[in-house]
Amino acid sequence: MSLWSEFLTHQGRTIHKWKHYFPAYERHFCRFVDRPVTFLEIGCGLGGSLQMWKRYLGPHAQIVGIDIRSVCAEYQEDQIAVRIGDQSDPAFLSSIIDEFGHPDIVLDDGSHVMAHVLASFGYLYQRCASDGVYLVEDLHTAYWDEYGGGLGREGTFIELCKALIDELNADWSRGALMPTEFTRSTQSMHFYDSMAVFERGRTLGKSAPMYPALPQD
């Protein structure tokens, strides 16, 4: 059953998601299905998405929801843990890593305030599994003043992403930009309407072999 079908047939707590997110979810999360995976969702909403991830990812998945609202503690059930705290607080995020280990997937559906999104990414990205996925959604707020956004405004997550594209390609900058930990630990970046996805992975030395080799003169 597809994730979209899981959503349409869901009978548990309410899920509130944009329709066009589902193909991207499935594209980036499908390789984790039925694996022992730790899925961290920032922002618990009405609790339904936690249940959807549990159903989709299967019996070996540990779903962890974090939210600043104490009422979200009621969403706990088998395979679903909820911890109450601020997504921009490094001490709180550290306690999540200490308890559950390095997440394989992080999905930021939290406050959508740019300062909070940046703080979570800054702390959690390099603490994800080495082959993990970090997805930030509802990035339309990066263009809205009330969330600290604005077109071309310094300090939004979209502007950070523009700089990270350069870091991803730092090896080709001819010394203008030194490779960073992001360069060395990121395989790819993907952008969708209101969504950014980062695929982590070890990078090896870059080469462009030619097979079969051309004959030598």
Rank of each mutant, 00 (worst) to 15 (best):
L8K: 15
L8C: 15
L8F: 10
L8H: 12
L8D: 15
L8Y: 10
L8V: 10
T9P: 08
T9A: 14
T9F: 10
H10E: 09
H10Q: 09
H10A: 12
Q11G: 12
Q11K: 15
Q11H: 15
G12W: 11
G12M: 10
G12I: 07
G12D: 12
R13T: 06
R13A: 13
T14F: 12
I15T: 13
I15M: 10
I15P: 11
I15Y: 11
K17R: 15
K17E: 07
K17V: 08
K17H: 09
K17C: 08
K17G: 08
W18Y: 11
W18T: 07
W18D: 13
K19G: 09
H20C: 10
H20E: 15
H20F: 14
Y21R: 07
Y21V: 05
Y21C: 04
Y21G: 05
Y21I: 00
Y21W: 12
F22Y: 14
F22L: 07
F22R: 00
P23G: 04
P23H: 10
A24P: 07
A24K: 09
A24T: 13
Y25R: 05
Y25E: 04
Y25V: 00
E26G: 02
E26S: 06
E26H: 05
R27D: 09
R27N: 13
H28N: 07
H28V: 06
H28M: 10
H28A: 08
H28F: 14
C30I: 12
C30L: 12
R31A: 11
R31D: 13
R31G: 09
F32Q: 07
F32G: 03
F32Y: 14
F32A: 05
V33E: 00
V33G: 01
V33D: 01
V33H: 05
D34A: 02
D34K: 03
R35T: 07
R35L: 05
P36L: 01
P36W: 03
P36V: 02
V37L: 06
V37K: 06
V37I: 08
V37D: 04
T38V: 09
T38Q: 08
T38D: 08
T38Y: 06
F39H: 05
F39S: 01
L40M: 06
L40F: 03
L40P: 01
L40G: 02
E41H: 04
E41V: 01
E41F: 04
E41W: 04
E41D: 05
E41G: 02
I42S: 02
I42N: 03
I42R: 03
I42V: 09
I42A: 05
G43F: 03
G43D: 00
G43E: 00
G43Y: 02
C44W: 02
C44F: 01
C44G: 01
C44K: 00
G45N: 01
G45M: 04
G45H: 03
G45S: 04
G45D: 04
L46T: 02
L46R: 15
L46A: 07
L46C: 07
